[in-house]
Write a protein that binds this DNA or RNA. Structure first.
Length: 258
DNA sequence: ATGGTAGCGCTGCTA
């Protein structure tokens, strides 16, 4: 079983490349973020023709999350449970059960800047995510919570920590919020497998950033212990980022033997 | 200290 997470920065721009990648890599489940379209504009047919079912949660040209699966999708949840006033009403969360694994595709708010109100929104969003995952016991059984978390959990996940100090993605409150997700019992599988040489998942579009590997590890695959124990590998597919018109993120892949 | 690129959609916002 191969599960991937990938912020694709507009599905309409990259549908061919996403479907081809999923097929070429034989991904069973692909958790997508930043589809940047409403449900009516999502290119379902391209996935269906390739053998993938898709569930999508999008409203307009911002955010948007989806799950593509060739092992079925059941019990779909779009967004948070309960009331969904701002800042919890954006399409940043979708869950479904695929091949016996509860899969969560999450797109955490960026935060913009430490002195911007959206930064506080990011913190409360992460706390609500923690509550949602606790309520649904996502750390138990077979679960994976993956996506663009927009937080680099530690300095080793940043190409130049000094340059990134006192900015979003690295601030202590954001990192504490990610720690609290792990305290549920979820496991940052990529960190545990590559503790000394973290693989970045995002690079600024600015020329040279990818080639110099000036990136961040902000896409995470948080696994329940059952799933982590069945994982045989976790890796970032940098070839996707080398595409002639790539997303600014590369896919993060988790391989499991169930 | 600044600006560099990309996507959306049409002017500037978001990342």
């Amino acid at each position: 079983m191969r599960i991937a997470t990938w912020n694709i920065n507009s599905i309409r721009t990259r549908v061919d490349q996403v479907v081809a990648w999923s097929t070429d890599r034989a991904a069973d489940v692909v958790l997508l973020q930043e589809t940047k379209c409403g449900d009516d504009d999502f290119p379902f047919d391209a996935f269906t023709e390739a053998g993938y079912d898709v569930v999508h949660y999008g409203v307009d040209h911002w955010n948007g999350v989806a799950i593509a699966s060739r092992v079925g999708i059941d019990d779909v949840q779009r967004g948070f449970s309960g009331s969904v006033s701002a800042p919890f009403d954006e399409p940043r969360l979708i869950a479904g059960t695929c091949g016996g694994i509860r899969c969560w595709s999450v797109y955490v708010p960026n935060g913009r800047a430490l002195d911007d109100p959206h930064y506080l929104d990011k913190l409360v969003w992460l706390e609500r995510l923690r509550g949602e995952l606790q309520q649904h016991r996502a750390a138990e059984g077979r679960s994976i919570v993956a996506g663009d978390v927009n937080v680099a959990p530690a300095d080793r996940d940043v190409y130049d920590p000094t340059r990134w100090r006192r900015r979003t993605h690295t601030s202590p409150p954001e990192r504490d919020a990610v720690c609290r997700l792990l305290e549920l019992g979820l496991i940052d599988h990529a960190r545990d497998h590559h503790p000394d040489t973290p693989e970045f998942t995002w690079w600024n579009y600015r020329p040279g950033q990818f080639d110099k590997d000036h990136g961040l590890r902000i896409d995470l695959a948080l696994c329940s212990s059952v799933v982590a124990n069945k994982a045989t590998g976790v890796w970032v597919d940098r070839t996707a980022r080398a595409h002639k018109r790539p997303s600014d993120h590369a896919p993060l892949v988790v391989d499991l033997v169930l």
